[in-house]
Amino acid sequence: MIKDVPKYCNLFLLMSLFFLCSPTAEAKRPEYHLALKKHLFHPAQIIIPANKKVKLVILNHDNSVEEFDSFDLNREKVIFPKQKSIIFIGPLPVGEYHFFGEYHPNSARGKVIVVEINNTQAVSPDALSSKQGGLDVN
């Protein structure tokens, strides 16, 4: 029966394997930190470089569950009390991308600001976080 499976079925299987085996260099992603305290995100805005994939680490300091949600970023993740969660975002073009806490949408709000970084400038999270006005908890 295997030899009778249509060729397009084999193609589907091959494509699935290709996508599943595609390498992802997780270890080298720049890391940005977000803290959740009393249903508020700190910092309320994060600046990241354009066209780069970044790792967002969210630490929930509260005693209740929250859900990081963003339609702009197409991301949704439950963050349990006193635990951290990791989300990867990007590559994103220049602009602002809003996120919120789904369980407390009126208070837990923030945005990711994507900016163009020249090749000669520092791209490290430390360099970018120095541009941020909010409280940055690492």
Binding site: T24, K53, K55, F88
Partner: peptide, 8 residues
């Protein structure tokens, strides 16, 4: 894709 298992 959210957890980088599939490429972004």
């Amino acid at each position: 894709q959210q957890v980088d298992v599939l490429p972004l």
